[in-house]
Every structure is written in C-alpha cells, then in structure tokens.
Amino acid sequence: MQSIGDALGLAFALVFSGDPDLLEIVLLSLRVSLTATALACLIGFPIGALVAIGRFPGRNAVLVFMNALMGLPPVVVGLMVYLHLSRSGPLGFLGLLYTPTAMIIAQIILIAPIVAALSRQVLEDLHSEYAEQFRSLCLTRLQTVQALLWDARYSLLTVGLAGFGRAVAEVGAVIIVGGNIDHLTRVMTTAIALETSKGDLALALALGIILLVIALGVNAAVQSVRMTATRQAYV
C-alpha cells in the first residue's frame, strides 16, 4: 500500500510517460463508449422523434416505459446481456461474451433509452413550436422529422454528449460482460476497480485523472456548443 502522495506522483508520471498499457486501456474505453454512443444516437434519435410527433394508441405507455428504461441499473443490464451472450444463452453461438462488442452492446442498452427520452423531450418542444407552420406548408412526416432533427442539432449534440458521459463512466455492466481481461476488454473504469482492489493506486489514480479530464472535456464541449448555438439563436 502506497501513500496517497507517492501514488499521486506516480500517477502523474504515468499519465505523462505515455505508458503503452495505460494508453491501450484509454483507447479501448474511448472506442467502446464512442461506438456505443453513436449507435445509441442512431437508435435513440428516430425513436425520440417518432414518439415526439406521433399520436398513436399506447403513446403514454411508451413514454412511461422509456422513462423507466432510463433508470436501468447497469449491473442488471450487464446481467441480462451476459445471460443472452453466455455459451448456453440464446445468442451464445455468436461467441461475443468477453469481447469489446459485448461491452458496446451493454452500453447501447444502457444509454439508448436516455438518448431517446431526452431527445423526445427536446423534439417535442420544438415540434409544438413548428407544428402549425409545418402543417400549413404541407410537409410530409419524413420532411418534418428531418427538419426537427436538424433544427434541434445543438440540443441533440448535448444529449449525445450526456449519453457518452454516462457510457464512459459506467463500470457495472462492462465488467460483467467484458470480464476486465487484460489487453482485451480492460477499460478505464474496470481497471480502476481492479487496480484499487490490488492496491496499485498509481495506475488507478492515473486512470482516474484521465477519466476526470474526459468528463471535464465533455462538459466543456457541451458548454461551448450551447454558447455557439445561443449566440446564433439556434437553441
């Protein structure tokens, strides 16, 4: 067990040394979470848009369901994905368990509902402003959805960044379906959990620092997107 001061010193040394193991972990984290975020947006935005402008029976039930999915506990998602992907599970033949793909799937399931629910809110507000004018212009449903998605682009970008923030910081699901295998499925959060339990605080802290920087970076990005958009009255 190192003293915190020593560990912190080592941690900064690690961060700035460009340690290949560290880099590998960080890059895998980013690859998994960025891919999951992109796919979650691809799924979540259209669903959000359809629920936002659609008037169909059972719409309220869908809303409740979407909001409930937002609060899914990551370990439960991890467990469900594990059960499906494990050798005896229905998708076991794909051999995806303990691969980055499995982690991506788990993160998509975690954040797609968040993306869908938040974008639904954003798009519904915008639609209530545009609806009458759009109807007068006789736009098709597809044209309406496209215009809403484009005009909400800045808000949707912040929604995406919020999803990414949640994905990259999540540990419960990826440790179950990824297994935290060195050089294969070890990401920042799972490595921090492992190294801390092993007592290697330097590596844990180094990863913690990077994770913090990423979190701050995402927040700064959200902020600057907001400011750009506000300046042009595009929010």
């Binding site: 009458e132 007068s136 212009l137 595009y234």
Partner: peptide, 17 residues
Amino acid sequence: VMSRQALVLQKPVLLRR
C-alpha cells in the same frame, strides 16, 4: 387545397437556420 395556400402567422415561426 391547403398545399395551394399559404399562411403567415402573427408571430413568425422561423427555422433555426
């Protein structure tokens, strides 16, 4: 005949573009 008509609302609704 709506598509052959146009309406200008009292408060213009302009796109964020």
